[in-house]
Amino acid sequence: MNFQFVLDNLAALTVTGLTQGSIYALVALGYTLVYGVLRLINFAHSEVFMIGTFTTTIIWAALGFGVGAAAPSTLGVLGLILAAVLAAGAASGATALVVERVAYRPLRKRNAPPLIFLISAIGASVALMEAAGAITNRQPRGMPSLVFPKVQFSIFGADVTNLQLGIIFSALLMWVGLDTFINRSRLGRGVRAVAQNPEVAALMGVNKDRVIMLIFILGGAMAGAASVLYDVKVGLTTYSVGFLIGIKAFTAAVLGGIGNLRGALLGGLLLGVVENYGAGVFGNQWMDVVAFLVLVVVLLFRPNGLLGESLGRARA
């Protein structure tokens, strides 16, 4: 155990943890939205993220930013990121929608019990992952560095780079956008109504199927944005990339209170930071053990997560 190391580098570990946590948080939003409305854990969401990471590399290569390409200008970087967010958001959103149509809607129409949905979700996840594995020959796909990190400022001895700032702020921006949409817009009101009480919402004229389509698209788009940030940060993707990120994001959602948008954000950031501290104290190989222990301990005292679960009442 190495507490001294963590104490000495607390600020630096916090910054790198927040960066990773931002990506968890964006993916967690997809789990939370679907759970909030349908009480369903969409295990295929990790593959929705994976599709986004590949779409990003494909769109970059199509725009001339393939392997071996030189670093573009600042304007070029912004353009590439925007193009990638749009493309990956669209691809991931579309994938999520297809999963909903193929794996969930037919079951919902037949009033299948929750266990059947769970199996269908796992099946969709495996099918998508294996399809991607077959198409890519299980080979990783790399991409050139888009952003070359430069230290912007130091805070408590931690050097903060433009890459880290960019990832954290992009994630926050996406989250604020989604939160505003759900809480302020007409469509968002529909989502909250269905989350609170589907029957009454239907009586009030809310189209439940449209709301469900909407949340899958929104969750998928968030995963798409997360996948762009992931690609910029990691620079390599494989067909199985979604598995670990998906588990972590799901953990983040549960930690914050599943079904709660603010909970997903808090859970994601917290998980990123805690696992970084854990890795510092116990060694890198204990990172996930620490993360899940924290989850169990939190759930012992707050069974509904830190902020409680409820998309419908997530206005406070």
Binding site: F5, N9, A12, L13, T16, G17, T19, Q20, Y230, K233, V234, L236, S240, V241, F243, L244, N276, A279, G280, G283, N284, Q285, M287, D288
Partner: peptide, 17 residues
């Protein structure tokens, strides 16, 4: 010395160490 996990993609702590 350090140990990484299969499929690990974030190495913030290790890099720092």
């Amino acid at each position: 010395s350090g140990v990484v996990k299969e499929q690990q993609t974030d190495f913030g702590t290790l890099v720092q160490e």
